[in-house]
Design a protein around this nucleic acid. Structure first.
Lengths: 701, 701
DNA sequence: GTGTTGGCAACTGGCCGACAA
DNA sequence: TTGTCGGCCAGTTGCCAACAC
């Protein structure tokens, strides 16, 4: 019987692998799969976004937010039912000093990606294409470059073409060139195909001319319109939830054809399958949450593991070429930086670059993954309507631009690039006409009413550092060009002349100042001078721009505790912190991060509060608040007093909080208030989080 | 997040339960689901028959062959794809002395099953019914009793009827009464239904008038013709294999409509989906083997567990009302008994009773479940062609008949009941014309060639007790009527005058004597006289008929060891056996069976060999042999000698056996030959089994 | 009483050019 | 250049009575 079971398992595993070229054509031109044996970083966070349900990382061992792995194998596969393509990657966690790492990591940062892509063409089906009893309008480009040569001398020119699908099945279509004006059509056979594949308007079909000359046909299903939560923008604030809490910031990755779908959607009188422009693109993945847990557990134990990646899930790749990550993280990312990011056009024929500005640099999930660069960048797009759901991106997905004015652009500035807007008269043109509404959603998390505040009020105490932006006036900054790559040590002279600030008239619609948001376009000063802090801690090099210390928002928020942290130039030894008694200790509360040692600047993004706190002091966070406040627990005598204090601080009822306050202690353990005696609590608690939603009771703190 | 997970779990569990009445209509009238909170016996063996693959009970704890359980919950469900109905039963193992057992078990043995069944009707689709573009011929009965009243005054009488399927979806049909001669038809809407449900000729449709007046429609899929093994009758002999070895005896349960399908099959020019009359009805279930293991493991640990039951799998219910089992097992079953067994007719309108004779009483799987009453009875049918695959039934499925001549009937005796035979001229009438072929298949397991014997030879040594039947002459027996129920103690006078034996002319076609097979229709003598056995063991009451001890075949086979066992009138203490040294011990090798204590006679069926063996003696079984032989291991000095002895005994090559001899030792543990030193082996081995098929290496011994 | 058949009517699938965006 | 529409032809679906058993 054992033999029986085994053979059954084997059959199950015998799912056919398909031609990688067809796979890539179906996946889309933006999808870059790593080479076998190359090194990648695996991001549990990204994997979790790929899951169909919430992933509770509490149930598996702690692991680094990015795990260096060697790609042992890749299987390119397709769902037998839907033809949806996916890949199985077998990854082997490796140590940085492993031999096989050196081999790869020395390699290309902008390596030759010139594997010759075969000619392919994608078209989103129109109503007419998908109509029962209709044919398929073949775009001329496709007919002439992908299809077999048609003999135009015949009258009418007609041929039968054969196309293999992802399963190797062959489909026959009659290809005719007729009508006035002449056009290419697929007639006989098309309807069968549409019915068999259950295609609807909005789905895409991919034709590919394989290297051996065979014609292949693939399918990209239109993404179903999944409405996220009731508040599409509740995800603006990443703090307080782990990735299991659905929010736009994590799942709002859009590919270019999504963008085009949005545009196109206005064109469709009944494009029910497409996302309305303001729905949250909550991409529910196909991966089981347990599969993520399993992978993470194995990764944590340095065991080989397998992951499944759906390239067309609306989440970024979570296994990314190591060199790409490392190159990206050598940059010192700051708010205000201008970047561009590529999206694929609908027909897969070209890449559109969208421009944007980094609005802030902060870890996406400070509680769950305080040291993760995943979606580190909060961005604002020059065409906000098109990409409004893309709010957080990972650094390696964007490319910094040097020749653009490094000034914050209004969301209403005209698109930097000619985009194809639908031009039907029945299209409401939401995306085209700048509406002079207050851009509340872009600057202020529009869900502060979570905290029982009227949304309009947004008091400074609540908004924390973000709100502090409004306090500064707009400076006329002359900013350096930043290249992607490591800035040499010392203060390098700007290698480009300063560019005059461009201020658009649209600025008039904005709140007085956005300046703070863009105040930190700078180069890193790996200063050799160090100053003594009052507590005797050696201060790492300061980041200075025009004589001002430059801080990330988190650093700003931290300043209330009297500390600022700066990059530690020494990558080889652990930073030591004062425990307030003059002695030093190794810092706790931060997961091992050998990665950080190689990218010292990056530490700034997480070496923030807890480790530097005086004993008895504790950071207090509201769930979905970016920043916290410091509280001296030593002044309190009981949990009751704590509740009173918190009640005052956040103007909420004790009643609401009782069961919703979690804290992380000095060892990193997460506990509920009351889990230990109050005296122990005051000594060990380092970070305290007030959850507003009882359903998220056990998020990572 | 736990809350979130839970709610998702709930959604998953929220699979809609459907109306139990519709469920029962789809399941068929023979299916009796227990009431919630009632007591049932759960049969792991039956559960295993329900699985889609072999179940290896070696991997789970030993458990009684029937586990008394309270039914905590029943969910009536339907497959969302196929509409196939199934039930989820949640069972809580209980002890016999538990309070809640007493409550129920005092209850009805022939309890009121008169839950008012709503009117329903089933029809197997004809070619015309299932044809594309055709309508559905509504049998008059169905139209008049199930469908809403039709206004016959209209010309033509026509109405639209709405019917809810198992998912609650409503289907609309045009019901018209037209044609010459007039008949009821479903036209518009029918084709949609057929296509949507993917119905083919041979599938059945069930219409049901629910209590609230709603019309419901359900589906019974035709059973796919699954060919069992290469030898359809290899399963005739149940010995030596556990239920994981597919054989007809276990999976050949036929419902009435199967029978009718068989009949009907001759009628269908292309009834490809139906079982040819001589194919083994190997009903591959839908339950995963692991699910069985899980259930058994939980049951063994007295934990609540859940089972899924597909009423239309071709296996009997494996959760049976406790009272039914207990009533059945109060009977003393003997070969030769006449019984009837109900099958449902195809249209579910009535029950057909098929008559048969018990050909032997022996546990179905002496190695895996030596104490199980599951399929205890080997039977011969008066209409063998119809039920040729039903060879073993469980006692509770049949009803003893008293007023029939208790004489073995020829397989060719005319059916006792008018059966609906197809009357088409193109039907070969296999079932109607008594063919004077030798009924070899009924008397002799026709696969003795497994043992390299020519099938004709059937030497006494091989056939064991079965063959001994031929040695006796046909007696003219005057037999008592046997009622189902417990016979009062003492020799009760026959309450009916003896009936003259009816011998049909068909007897001429039989072998000289079938008498032994029918020699044991008797009443149980719960004698107060007891005799001393030579070894000093108190002999339980003997079963005596006309001065002869009456033995089951197993008892006969056991007589070679010099022992006979008889019912122990004392239900409250464990029977003690001599160990051959004059001392007594509690018997080993038998799983706990509190059940048996209540049905002392039943012990005869398994308290056979091992416990009574002299030390050093061992029973030897060939796989799929009913009976074993006793071997004195103490005379052997090595495994080599053992092999030689076995080779002689069964005339097989040592080569074949080497790895295929298992044994069960005195503790019940199953081992391979060679697992322990020969000296230990000779002391402990109690039952030795030669497996002929290497694939079944790990069957339960 | 009901399964099957062939006739016939209605419908739909599917190919086409025209037209318009 | 290509999406959609109406026209139109043909193949299919599906209703029906007749017929058969």
């Amino acid at each position: 019987m054992i033999a029986f079971m085994e053979s059954k398992e084997q059959t199950k595993e015998m799912e056919k692998c398909l031609d990688p070229q067809l796979w890539h054509a179906c996946a889309g031109g933006m999808v870059q799969m790593p080479q076998v044996n190359s090194m990648v970083y695996y991001f549990p966070q990204g994997h979790a976004e790929h899951a169909c349900g919430p992933v509770n990382f509490m149930t598996c061992p702690k692991v680094q937010p990015l795990v260096l792995c060697r790609v042992e194998a890749i299987k390119y596969m397709a769902d037998p039912e839907t033809d949806e393509v996916y890949a199985k990657l077998r990854l082997i966690p490796v140590n940085r000093n492993d031999a096989d790492y050196a081999r790869d990591s020395a390699g290309d940062i902008n390596g030759s990606e010139s594997q010759d892509k075969p000619a392919s063409f994608a078209k989103t089906l129109t109503q007419s294409d998908a109509n029962n009893g209709g044919g398929f309008s073949v775009p001329r480009y496709c007919a002439e470059t992908i299809f077999p040569r048609l003999d135009y001398s015949a009258e009418p020119p007609v041929q039968n073409i054969l196309a293999k699908d992802v399963h190797g099945e062959t489909w026959k279509f009659r290809h005719i060139y007729r009508g006035t004006p002449r056009r290419h059509l697929l007639t006989t056979g098309w309807s069968t195909f549409v019915n068999h594949k259950k295609l609807v308007a909005g789905d895409s079909i991919v034709f590919l001319r394989a290297e051996n000359g065979d014609l292949c046909v693939g399918i990209r299903r239109a993404k179903k319109g999944l409405i996220g939560g009731p508040e599409a923008s509740s995800g603006w604030n990443p703090a307080g939830g782990n990735s299991s809490v659905p929010y736009g910031g994590l799942a709002a990755y859009l590919r270019g054809d999504d963008v085009n779908s949005l545009l196109r959607n206005g064109n469709n009188s009944n494009g029910l399958n497409l996302n309305p422009p303001n729905s949250s693109m909550m991409g529910k993945g196909k991966v089981r949450p347990e599969a993520v847990i399993e992978a993470v557990t194995l990764a944590a134990n340095k065991q080989p593991f397998e992951v499944v990646y759906y390239p067309r899930a609306s989440t970024p790749e979570y296994c990314v070429k190591a060199s790409l990550i490392e190159a990206a993280l050598h940059n010192r990312w700051c708010s205000g930086m201008r970047f561009k990011m590529p999206f694929e056009t609908e027909d897969s024929s070209r890449i559109s670059w969208f421009m944007g500005t980094i609005s802030s640099v902060q870890v996406a999930d400070p509680l769950g993954w305080p040291t993760s660069p995943w979606r580190l960048l909060q961005v604002m797009w020059d065409e906000p309507d098109l990409l409004q759901n893309v709010r957080r991106v990972s650094p390696w997905l964007v490319e910094l631009v040097s020749n653009m004015p490094a000034i914050h652009l209004s969301p209403f500035s005209p698109p930097r690039k000619k985009l194809r807007f639908p031009q039907h008269s029945d299209f409401p043109l939401d995306g085209q006409i700048p509406m002079p509404t207050f851009p509340n959603n872009l600057l202020v998390p529009n869900n502060k009413n979570l905290f029982s505040y009227p949304p309009e009020s947004s008091p400074a105490g609540m908004q924390g550092a973000r709100h502090a932006l409004y306090g500064l006036s707009l400076p006329s900054l002359h900013l350096n060009r930043l290249q992607s790559g490591l800035i040499p040590s010392g203060f390098p002279p700007p290698d480009h002349a300063a560019t005059p600030t461009r201020i658009t008239t649209n600025m008039l619609f904005q709140k007085p100042s956005m300046s703070e948001d863009v105040s930190c376009l700078l180069s890193m000063a790996n200063s050799t001078q160090s100053t003594k802090k009052p507590d005797g801690l050696k201060t790492p090099p300061q980041l200075v721009l025009f004589g001002q210390k430059i801080l990330t928002e988190q650093q700003i928020s931290m300043s209330s505790s009297g500390d600022t942290v700066s990059p530690d130039g020494n990558a080889d030894k652990l930073t030591k912190f004062s425990d307030g008694n003059g002695s030093t200790r190794h810092h706790h509360g931060l997961p091992e991060c050998s990665f950080c040692e190689r990218f010292p600047w990056y530490k700034d993004n997480y070496q923030e509060t807890e480790a530097n706190l005086e004993i008895g002091h504790c950071k207090v966070f509201m769930e979905s608040e970016d920043v916290g406040r410091t509280m001296d627990l030593s002044l309190l005598r009981s949990y009751d007093e704590l509740y009173r204090k918190l009640t005052d601080m956040f103007a909420i009822e004790k009643f609401e909080m009782l069961s919703h306050v979690l804290y992380r202690d000095i060892t990193g353990a997460v506990k509920h208030i009351g889990d230990e005696p109050f005296s122990d609590f005051t000594k060990t608690a380092r970070r305290l989080t007030i959850l507003m939603d009882s359903s998220s009771d056990n998020v990572g703190v």
